[in-house]
């Protein structure tokens, strides 16, 4: 079985994001970029499935600017086998990404697609579910545990009230939550090996997908900042403030 893992290049989660002066977006110049943290977890899960003998090839796919190939390279250094890179002329929405990925899935026929539950830039939380719909496959979102048997995957999902376990037929799309696993670091020998692993570059025009955005961004602004509060000297003072000043208890 093949496993496909879509990986997105995003601003590193430690970076303090800044909105551009002209309100056209956020500042991406000279900002540290990294693989979307959820996608690292997805890659790790694919590696564990392969190591358990339930998969024989892991394919990473990234859509974005040419530097997204570095993101693929990061996943190859973790242990994935090969990459597919689709260069996008502008930012792509989840619907377009899902269509492009579904197209690749039809060519590659993976038994599983494992992706992040959300990209930490757009915070959309859509792509996996959309891909699953377009392929007519089952979906298991927000996974915190996955176990495979012959034709099904048993997935524990993080839901608002607690946890839920479902069984989905394969092929399936699984979107991963933070507690599924701890992604490994790439070792130096694996980083060296990854340099020789193949990345296929596919031209977006050959995929027959209209990627015209449906949403236009009119402006991007900073949220209101909270005004700095005060330090209180004791529990006593805290309670007085909450009762008499803030009147919240």
């Amino acid at each position: 079985m093949k496993i496909m893992v879509p990986v997105k290049r995003v601003i590193d989660y430690n970076v303090k994001v800044r909105v551009k002066q002209d309100q056209s977006g956020v500042e991406l110049n000279n900002v540290k970029m990294a693989m979307n943290p959820f996608d690292e977890i997805a890659v790790e899960q694919a590696l564990r499935i392969k190591e358990a003998g339930d998969a024989d090839e892991i394919i990473l796919v990234s859509i974005g600017p040419s530097q997204s190939q570095e993101t693929i390279r990061t996943g190859l250094a973790m242990g994935a086998d090969r990459g597919i890179f689709i260069e996008a002329p502008h930012e792509t929405e989840p619907l377009s990404v899902a269509k492009l990925l579904a197209n690749i899935a039809k060519q590659e026929n993976p038994g599983l697609i494992i992706c992040g539950k959300q990209a930490i830039d757009d915070d959309s939380n859509q792509t996996g579910q959309m891909m699953s719909a377009l392929l007519g496959w089952s979906q298991a979102t927000f996974a915190s545990a996955v176990s495979l048997s012959a034709n099904t995957a048993l997935v524990t999902r993080e839901i608002d009230g607690g946890l839920e376990t479902i069984s989905v037929k394969m092929p399936a799309v699984i979107t991963v939550d933070l507690r599924l696993n701890e992604p490994r670091y790439a070792s130096l020998p694996n980083i060296m090996k990854a340099k020789k692993k193949p990345i296929d570059v596919i031209s977006i025009d050959t995929l027959g997908v209209d990627i015209t955005p449906r949403l236009s961004v009119l402006k991007v602004e900073e949220p209101e900042t909270r005004k700095a509060g005060i330090k209180v000297g004791s529990v006593e003072e805290l309670l007085t403030k909450l009762q008499d000043e803030a009147k919240v208890i």
């Binding site: 994001v17 830039d121 915070d123 961004v217 949220p223």
Partner: peptide, 10 residues
């Protein structure tokens, strides 16, 4: 977007 560090009007 970006964990609430920016607000987009779409």
């Amino acid at each position: 977007i970006y964990a609430g560090n920016a607000l987009a009007t779409v």
